[in-house]
Simulated scan of single mutants.
Amino acid sequence: MADAAVSPDPDLIRALRALSNPMRLQLLSWLREPERHFSPEGAIADPAEVGVCVSHIQAKAGLAQSTVSAYMAELERAGLVRSTRVGKWTHYKRDEERIARLVADLGRTL
Rank of each mutant, 00 (worst) to 15 (best):
Ala5Val: 13
Ala5His: 08
Ala5Met: 11
Ser7Ala: 12
Ser7Leu: 12
Asp9Thr: 03
Asp11Pro: 08
Asp11Phe: 12
Leu12Gln: 08
Leu12Glu: 09
Ile13Tyr: 12
Ile13Val: 15
Ile13Cys: 15
Arg14Met: 09
Arg14Phe: 06
Ala15Lys: 00
Ala15Trp: 00
Leu16Asn: 10
Leu16Trp: 10
Arg17Ala: 14
Leu19Tyr: 06
Ser20Phe: 07
Pro22Ile: 06
Met23Ile: 15
Arg24Met: 08
Arg24Thr: 07
Arg24Val: 07
Gln26Asn: 09
Gln26Lys: 07
Leu27Tyr: 00
Leu28Thr: 00
Leu28His: 00
Leu28Pro: 00
Leu28Gln: 01
Trp30Arg: 02
Trp30Ile: 02
Trp30Ser: 02
Leu31Ala: 03
Arg32Phe: 10
Glu33Gly: 09
Glu35His: 08
Glu35Thr: 10
Arg36Phe: 01
Arg36Pro: 00
His37Val: 06
His37Phe: 09
Phe38Arg: 01
Phe38Trp: 03
Phe38Ala: 00
Ser39Cys: 03
Ser39Gln: 06
Pro40Val: 04
Ala43Phe: 07
Ala43Met: 11
Ile44Phe: 13
Ala45His: 05
Ala45Pro: 06
Asp46Thr: 07
Pro47Ile: 01
Pro47Trp: 01
Ala48His: 13
Glu49Ser: 12
Val50Gln: 04
Gly51Ala: 07
Gly51Trp: 01
Val52Thr: 04
Cys53Asp: 15
Cys53His: 09
Val54Trp: 08
Val54Gln: 12
Ser55Val: 15
Ser55Pro: 10
Ser55Met: 14
His56Ile: 05
Ile57Gln: 05
Ile57Tyr: 02
Gln58Glu: 13
Ala59Gly: 08
Ala61Leu: 03
Ala61Val: 03
Ala61Asp: 05
Gly62Ser: 03
Gly62Thr: 04
Leu63Gly: 03
Ala64Tyr: 14
Gln65Cys: 14
Thr67Tyr: 09
Ser69Asn: 13
Ala70Pro: 10
Met72Cys: 10
Ala73His: 10
Ala73Leu: 13
Glu74Ile: 08
Glu76His: 10
Gly79Tyr: 05
Leu80Ile: 06
Val81Arg: 01
Val81Ser: 01
Val81Trp: 01
Val81Ala: 03
Ser83Arg: 10
Ser83Gly: 12
Ser83Pro: 05
Thr84Ser: 13
Arg85Asp: 15
Val86Lys: 08
Val86Asn: 06
Val86Cys: 08
